[in-house]
Every structure is written in structure tokens, then in C-alpha cells.
Amino acid sequence: MSAQGAGATGVPADVRVEVLEFLHHEAELLDDGRLDEWLELLTEDVSYAMPVRLTRERGQEPAVSAEMQFFQDDLATLRLRVRRLRTDFAWAEDPPSRTRHFVANARVAPGPTPDEVDVRCNVLVYRNRGASAASDLISGERRDRLRRVGGAWKLARRVFVPDQATLGVDNLAIFV
């Protein structure tokens, strides 16, 4: 361990703890439906993407589309989505679904600037709605960039790479 407590990743241990706390806090806000507070975790220039996954023969790339995404959002469109959910006509989430974001295997690496870190983690979103026992599972990898703004970590970039080529959901009226 170096003087700052940086391990093999080159990221100090206290920063890694802060990143984990950020991810857990974010999951709590999403699962509690505290979406206005969630928006506060995003930088002004946030990009939020979920590319289409493809089934390709081994060796034929790419298996993640560079051209089409399930989400291709910025702060303006994410705010629009949250505003819509607050109207009286957002039928897809009224009654709301119950979600549980499981965030695991976080790996923190130095970002392009001293105030940024790049984080990869595995995410499993469980979603249940109504009286049915059947549930949606959305599994994937997040490739996040967090930035320290005014002493607090914020999400500057998210690419959520889903593990399904055909998403097993009626809709994506939630956030991943």
C-alpha cells in the first residue's frame, strides 16, 4: 500500500469506499422512487446510454451495437422522463413497480482527470409489479464515470450493457 492507501488499481482506498457508498446510495434512491434526488446525483453534462446487445458468431464483432441504444439520454431527457412519471398519466408505472438494484463486483480505476474515476460493476435489477409473482430481471454491466463536483461524487457517464439481446421486459419505464 502506498502512503495514500492506493492499491494495485491506482485508486486510493478511501476513494474506493466513497465510490461504493455512491453506488449503494444511488441504488437506494432508485429503489425508493426518490427520482428527484437521483437527478441531483448527475452532472450537468451526464450521458446515459444502454446499447443494443447482439448475438454474433464468435469472432464477428461488435456484439454491442455502436449505433442503436435503448437509452441515449442526457440531463434534459432524463428530467423529462422523471417529470412524465410524476404526471397522472404515466400508466406504465402507476401503480409503480417494485425494483431492487443489486450492484456488485465494483472495480474502480483512475479516470481521465484527477477528479474522475471509471467504475465497472455488475448490476441485476429485479422488478415486480401488480399481484403477479412473475418478475423482470435485467442483468448487465455498468461502465460508469464518476466526477467529484464541489466535494461530492456525481455520475458523469453511464453505459449499461445488457446481457439480453431481446430484453425480457414489457417496457423500460425504470432506470438501470
Binding site: V52, T166, L167
Partner: peptide
């Protein structure tokens, strides 16, 4: 533009 979106409804 790219591949189609696919999901199971």
C-alpha cells in the same frame, strides 16, 4: 440506423 430494438412484450 443500427440493429432493431428487441424486447418481449
Amino acid at each position: 440506423v443500427g440493429p432493431p430494438h428487441r424486447h418481449e412484450l
